[in-house]
């Protein structure tokens, strides 16, 4: 574990989590959620849990972002609250 790399990852993780919750535009929210998953994947890889990182990259950052974007495009794009 490299503490500086760790710190950058964790700070960006919190930032992307807050942004994806606060954004009104659901399309950008789901994209930022994909970024969050990718940072999570880097964090797993950094903790040497490579199998989990692999799953996070494939499922979290890859396919579930696509599912969310497909759902957003089929429903309304902006959140009402």
């Amino acid at each position: 574990m490299i503490w500086a790399f760790d710190l950058i990852l964790l700070v960006f993780l919190v930032i992307t989590a807050i942004i994806s919750l606060r954004t009104k535009d659901l399309l950008s929210a789901s994209m930022i959620f994909g970024v969050y998953s990718f940072l999570m994947c880097l964090l797993w890889a950094e903790m040497e849990a490579v199998d989990v990182a692999f799953t996070e990259a494939a499922v979290g950052a890859g396919v579930s972002a696509v599912f969310l974007i497909a759902t957003v495009l089929r429903t309304s794009r902006r959140s009402s609250d």
Binding site: V50, D51, F54, A58, G62, V63, V66
Partner: peptide, 20 residues
């Protein structure tokens, strides 16, 4: 590292890419 879940998701994603 890898296995059925990850490989299956990547294989499914290739078809999703084709559809997109």
């Amino acid at each position: 590292p890898g296995g059925g879940f990850q490989g299956g998701v990547i294989f499914g994603a290739s078809f999703i890419l084709l559809a997109l």
